[in-house]
Design a protein around this nucleic acid. Structure first.
Lengths: 187, 187
DNA sequence: GTGATTTCTTATCATATGTAAAGTGCTTTC
DNA sequence: GAAAGCACTTTACATATGATAAGAAATCAC
């Protein structure tokens, strides 16, 4: 659990009591490469922290597989739109490399907000950071070309290329694998 | 201020003390059509609530004016990415119809979090809702065609067409005004 | 290791969108 | 009310991306 609390404390310091409370409602999960951590249609009630491995959130648009996002080591994997609306998610979480995760039960977590203000504050900040991230993603999709988006991804997460099949990267960028291939070729 | 607290209470109930505290750090602002409420380059330190009128958040990409979002009556206007990073925003807020707004000083607001847990909780929920909104926006930009996005906008905010110049709607959809014109023509 | 899959690239053609320019109609201004 | 400006549309052409299919390369299964 150390890696989790190292991550949390870098965002907002937690009391020992808070750490203990979070530990109580968390468990370690191992998932094999290519397996679904959470299936499409499942309502998100878990906040995952990726200790090792690699995951993506994906969905289908008319039988086309679309990657919404990637998650790397030491970051959270959450389908926020389902977590905060309590509706079944149209999205699934797939593990792309054997992964070890910490699963935090969200219903229990949200109850801790009443007794541990530092936990509420931590997660407020976590979700605010997620909001900022999404906004920069929108900017990127709204008015950068596919080529610019690819260059930005390379800069931001250089090893994504080595670790993730190109077809997943392509749909993440909002283009087809063929189109991404062309962009890569013209360098 | 009633409209503001009606809005807030629908998200999370506030104590009278909390309402008073928020009132103390808020003021009413009037802005004329086509004027900037906040200029590009300004660091966002204000959370605006739009009582009446209409506003947009915009920026320039290589001298092209791009609308990032519209805000209608009874909703917030915030450049979250600047508010939460304390960095100057590349975006400005422009008023598209004479508007009356309530300006909440964010630095003072965030201080109230310590003394009024209900205020922190309210804004946590407000920002969580914003996060969900941004995610659906990403989905829309990432894999819906311009035509689908236009149809979705019409459904979601039918009067946007009557109140907002098409060129702003076009860049909001991620296309040119010419392209939007074509889409409209082929119906 | 061999064959079978899967992944990636390349080629061809169709389509959507961009750019530029001109035209139409509406609104503003004096 | 004439002139000017602005918003929107239309046209013509250029370009980027999509769809499909086929080939090359890498990976997997046994």
């Amino acid at each position: 659990m150390q890696s989790l609390f190292r991550y949390f404390n870098s965002i907002h310091p937690l009391s020992k009591a808070a750490e203990t409370a979070i530990t109580t409602i968390s468990s370690v999960v191992q998932v094999q490469k290519n397996k679904d951590l959470q299936a499409i249609g499942h309502t998100c009630k878990t906040i995952y922290f990726l200790k090792s491995g690699l995951a993506r959130i994906y969905y289908f648009k008319e039988s086309t597989d679309i990657t919404e996002s990637f998650s790397f080591e030491n970051s959270l994997v959450v389908r926020y739109e389902s977590l905060f609306t309590s509706k079944p998610s149209k999205k699934g979480i797939q593990v792309l490399e054997d992964a070890e995760l910490i699963a935090i039960k969200s219903t229990a977590l949200f109850k801790l907000y009443d007794t541990h203000p530092d936990i509420e504050r931590l997660f407020r900040k976590v979700f605010e950071a997620a909001l900022v991230e999404q906004i920069s993603r929108i900017e990127s999709l709204q008015f950068h070309t596919a080529e610019e988006r690819y260059a930005a991804l390379l800069k931001e997460a250089p090893d994504v290329i080595k670790r993730v099949p190109l077809k997943f990267i392509a749909s993440y960028l909002g283009i087809t694998a063929v189109s991404l291939s062309r962009i890569r070729a013209q360098k």
